[in-house]
Computed example of a mutant assay.
Amino acid sequence: MTEQTDDSGRLRHLLTLEGLPRATIARLLDRARALLPDAHGGTALRGILAGRAVCTLFFEPSTRTRSSFQLAATRLGADVVDFNAASSSARKGESDVDTLRTLEAMGVHAFVVRHAEDGAVAELAAAAGPGTALVNAGDGRNAHPTQGLLDMLALRQAKGDDFSRLKVLIVGDVRHSRVARSDLHALRALGAGEIRVCGPQSLLPDPVVTAGCVVTTDLDAALDGVDAVMMLRLQRERMVGGLVPSLEQYHRDYGLTTRRLRAAADGAVVLHPGPMNRGVEIDAEVADGPQSLVLRQVANGVAVRMAVLEEVLGAAG
């Protein structure tokens, strides 16, 4: 696997949160929190990456992730190249590596990559030049590290930096979710007190993914006393065959409703990476309710991605 860090511990690439030490994750979260006041407007930080070029190299559709990375790069003063695979030479048979090297030759310094294949971003990082940084914006079912970071920042804002007493529940299509994997890696690294995973048996992953977690198919039992509930999108585009009998049955058994949420601890918060299937994995009253951190997650995305770009491009102070 391509090394993510250099000899000093600075990130060269961000491919996964798996194996990253707590100190590295905490440093990125601390920096993102410091960047929040400048994340949504202003030009105060535009000198940080002035003259650097960042390419959003997306082979899969995206709204939140692509837009927030573009805003993050712009806030830091980078030139942004938006690569659309649907209208590129990739349609003519050019390989992903050749696409990367072509853009590198034009002076692109960092690539933010989303790809349908597990491990595809790590393969591009291995092929990149020594001065080029790769950031994984989601690859297959494998990882979505910046989503994991912004989820952790939202949890910190709501519950404080010490996760040791937190009970956190991840619900839904864990089998197909790169977000769930990154959240699990981050929660373990940050010392979450108890991690619970719940979903239908057909949507639970290999036990190695949930090692150390309390795993159950009973949502009502899983919700008992938890401090945070992370709902996952039902990823029908990654499913093969009828893993879920019907959306109505899924909502009946695993949809988060106001009634169900009452079983959680007082002050429990709800997260969802989006896009939400309202009325399937989460009811509108919960998604838009006072316990929801969904919009805070989105707002945190720009600051988190600023912190990551700053670090991988060697601009962090």
Rank of each mutant, 00 (worst) to 15 (best):
I195Q: 05
V229Y: 05
D206C: 03
G279Y: 14
G191K: 00
V208I: 05
P275I: 14
R262I: 11
V229R: 04
D183G: 01
V286S: 12
V298L: 08
P290D: 10
V286H: 11
G255K: 02
L271W: 06
P205R: 09
G267L: 12
R238I: 10
V269R: 07
G267A: 09
T258W: 09
E237P: 02
M231K: 03
P275H: 14
H251P: 04
Y254R: 09
R262F: 09
L234G: 08
L256S: 00
L203G: 10
N277Q: 15
S246G: 03
L204T: 13
S202V: 14
E248I: 05
S246I: 03
D266F: 14
G199D: 08
D224E: 14
D206H: 04
I195G: 01
A221R: 15
I282R: 08
G241W: 12
A186V: 07
R188D: 00
V286N: 07
E285V: 13
V197I: 13
L190R: 02
P273E: 11
N300E: 10
H272K: 01
T210H: 00
V226F: 04
Q297T: 04
Q249M: 13
D224N: 11
M239E: 14
G193S: 05
E285D: 15
L243T: 01
G191D: 03
E194W: 02
N277R: 15
D183E: 06
P207Q: 06
Q235L: 00
A222W: 00
R252M: 13
V226D: 01
R238A: 10
E248T: 04
P273F: 11
M231F: 05
G242K: 13
D224S: 10
V215G: 06
V209F: 01
I195H: 02
Y250F: 07
L234R: 08
V270S: 05
V214K: 12
P275S: 08
I195N: 02
Y254C: 06
G242A: 14
L234S: 05
P200F: 08
L232F: 01
H251N: 06
D253L: 01
L232H: 06
A192N: 06
V209D: 00
L232Q: 04
G274S: 12
E281S: 06
P207I: 01
A263Y: 04
S246F: 04
R238M: 11
V294N: 09
P245A: 08
Q291C: 15
L190F: 05
T258H: 10
D227H: 12
P273V: 12
D288W: 11
C198I: 05
L271A: 03
L190C: 07
P200E: 07
D266G: 15
S202H: 10
G289P: 12
G193D: 06
G191T: 00
A287P: 10
R296Q: 13
G274D: 11
G241Q: 13
H272T: 00
Q235M: 00
A228H: 00
